[in-house]
């Protein structure tokens, strides 16, 4: 979740009155430089070494394209699920009071707290043909493990918190008077939701789904357990980068990694822009 856009600049009056500018600036820049920027620069340099032509060849090779297509499709499926499930959960948790609500609320953070490898292990065991879920699905001819559905389920699980947790606070802060007014005017509950509530939560909702999508694209730990790594079919892009690495194909690995970073940056920019829109709406200038 990006806070970049919501941070307003301190007023000019305060400038440099407080101590610690040099210290924190030096510390932060050094740290960010060494820990975050340097490795990313190493990747970019490696990518630049490849040359644009070869880079394009790698990225548009059938296997890379298939991996990217699978990753994006599965992430879209996962995000579609979380868009519905997340909205439902946010709604239920904010609008209703019932026994076990707090427990249900706490459950929303489990996918975040649980290491992805553990999630992958558990989901694979549950959905494999002799697992609890797989045993029910298999007779119906549905196989999950080693298919795109498995990839999507792993992605969906690990990105559950994002939609819920971005929509929840907005829904909580929603001004009740507009709803009251709409009801007085004879609007149906569905009309109230679609005309009053939904437009109000839409920016947060979009941010949440964008982050969930970005997170799904990069998911690795949970996916590799359940995906089956079949080239052209169930091989996600981040795994392909690792496979290229293991084949000593550094250029291939760097090119695919860079592509993924670029997609992530675009999504980050998108969510920052949405956040700026949101801030503008909530705090009129």
């Amino acid at each position: 979740m990006s806070v970049a856009a919501v941070i307003e600049a301190p007023t000019r009056r305060q400038k440099r009155v407080l101590p610690g500018f040099g210290l924190t600036m030096g510390l932060t820049l050094t740290y960010v430089g060494i820990i975050v920027l340097l490795p990313v620069i190493a990747l970019v340099l490696k990518g630049a070494e490849i040359g644009p032509l070869r880079f394009w060849e790698i990225v548009t090779a059938p296997r890379t394209l298939a991996a990217l297509r699978l990753t994006i499709t599965a992430a879209a499926l996962a995000t579609a699920f979380n868009a519905l499930y997340g909205l439902l959960m946010a709604w239920v948790l904010v609008r209703y009071r019932f026994p076990g609500r707090r427990l249900l609320d706490a459950m929303m953070d489990i996918p975040f707290a649980l290491p992805t490898a553990v999630a992958g292990l558990a989901l694979t065991a549950l959905f494999s043909e002799n697992g609890w879920y797989g045993a029910i699905l298999a007779p119906a001819g549905i196989s999950v493990v080693y298919t795109i559905w498995g990839v999507a389920i792993a992605m969906a699980f690990t990105s559950i918190p994002f939609v819920v947790r971005t929509v929840q606070p907005i829904l909580e802060d929603l001004d009740a008077s507009q709803e009251e007014a709409a009801r007085t005017l004879g609007a149906t509950p569905f009309q109230i939701f679609s005309r009053v509530i939904f437009p109000a939560i839409l920016p947060a909702y979009l941010i949440g789904t964008t982050i969930a999508f970005a997170r799904s694209l990069g998911e690795f730990g949970a996916v590799i357990f359940i995906a089956g790594n079949l080239p052209m079919k169930t091989e996600v892009a981040s795994l392909l980068a690792v496979i290229r690495l293991e084949e000593y194909d550094y250029n291939g690995a760097a090119a695919i990694a860079l592509t993924l970073v670029a997609i992530a940056l675009v999504l980050l920019a998108l969510s920052n822009w949405l956040q700026a829109q949101l801030t503008r709406r909530r705090v009129p200038a």
Binding site: Y146, G228, N229, L230, P231, T234, I243, E246
Partner: peptide, 12 residues
């Protein structure tokens, strides 16, 4: 090729 086509999953 025929044998490879019968492989449902390629582990690492």
């Amino acid at each position: 090729r025929k044998i490879f086509a019968n492989v449902p999953v390629f582990d690492q």
